[in-house]
Amino acid sequence: MEQVRRAPLADQAADLLLARIRAGEWPLGARLPGETTLGPQLGVGRSTVREAIRQLAGRGVLTSRQGSGVYVTALDAPEDWDVVLRRADIVSVIEARIAIESEAAGLAAERRTPADLRALRRALEDRAARRSQIEDHVDADMAFHRAVVTASHNSILVELFDGFVPRLRQAMVEMLRIRGEFGGDDDHDVHTDVLAAISTHDVALAARLSRAHLDSLKENLR
């Protein structure tokens, strides 16, 4: 396993952690190993690991939950998107998601494979099971939406979606805290319907359901 060899150590450690996340070692929502495990893997001390985690948290890739651990909240941190999305109004981000995800849902209905369906069903089941904690629920929701985009088999759409995740996740967590309710059956049923449309190759319905869901989300954010 590659280790840190040059200073600044925290920057190098952050780059290596991000490379492992990009490579799929930890999926969206996964908990990272502890500092005592990561330190030897990277060839650095615990304080350097903590600083590397802080750097990636600042870029929206990781989040620390007190008493729980460090979790993956984005699978990449495209530098060009970071500046754009920090300045963007969240409604603008949702509008861009509508363009990306409604197209992706239609393509997923057309192109999905049996493996894609299995991944979507697992993501939907995970989403259903994670309704008690806001951050867990948002992470599971993002994972399902990413599985839909992945099933489109369009790498550019996947890259665009990943660029939105840090900005979107923060906004969703804040919104749900204000509303005080989340994870209801009606909301989950919409996601079930999207999966059903993808499963039956109904391109138009999958795109329409995805757009309607995100339109509703945009209205709730106003």
Results as ranks from 00 to 15, higher is better:
197 A>S: 14
201 H>V: 04
145 H>N: 12
10 A>L: 07
70 V>E: 05
131 R>L: 06
198 I>M: 07
214 L>W: 05
34 G>M: 00
10 A>T: 12
182 F>G: 04
188 H>R: 07
19 A>K: 12
92 S>W: 02
177 R>T: 01
16 L>P: 02
216 S>C: 03
14 A>C: 10
29 G>R: 11
121 R>C: 02
215 D>C: 07
99 A>M: 09
72 V>G: 06
199 S>D: 15
12 Q>A: 15
149 V>D: 12
29 G>C: 10
26 W>N: 06
84 V>I: 15
27 P>E: 14
131 R>N: 00
68 S>R: 14
113 T>K: 01
178 I>F: 11
94 I>S: 08
135 E>S: 10
109 A>W: 05
191 H>I: 02
40 P>R: 08
78 P>H: 12
49 V>K: 08
187 D>K: 03
14 A>Q: 08
222 R>H: 10
55 Q>F: 01
166 P>L: 04
208 R>E: 13
215 D>Y: 00
152 S>T: 06
48 T>S: 14
70 V>F: 01
108 A>W: 03
201 H>Q: 11
59 R>V: 00
159 E>C: 02
151 A>Y: 04
205 L>I: 02
3 Q>F: 02
221 L>S: 10
77 A>T: 03
71 Y>N: 05
18 L>G: 03
169 R>G: 01
90 I>T: 12
120 L>F: 08
141 D>I: 04
89 D>T: 05
96 A>P: 00
26 W>H: 14
163 G>H: 10
123 A>G: 11
45 G>P: 05
107 L>A: 14
13 A>Q: 11
120 L>Y: 13
162 D>I: 01
176 L>K: 11
148 V>L: 08
8 P>N: 08
209 L>W: 05
129 A>N: 15
199 S>C: 07
182 F>L: 07
59 R>F: 05
6 R>H: 12
143 A>M: 11
31 R>N: 05
128 A>R: 15
73 T>K: 07
24 G>A: 11
49 V>H: 07
65 R>I: 09
3 Q>Y: 00
178 I>C: 01
157 L>Q: 05
60 G>V: 13
95 E>C: 03
115 A>W: 05
222 R>Q: 11
110 E>T: 11
88 A>L: 10
58 G>P: 10
12 Q>E: 15
25 E>I: 01
143 A>V: 08
191 H>Y: 12
144 F>P: 04
193 D>A: 15
154 N>T: 07
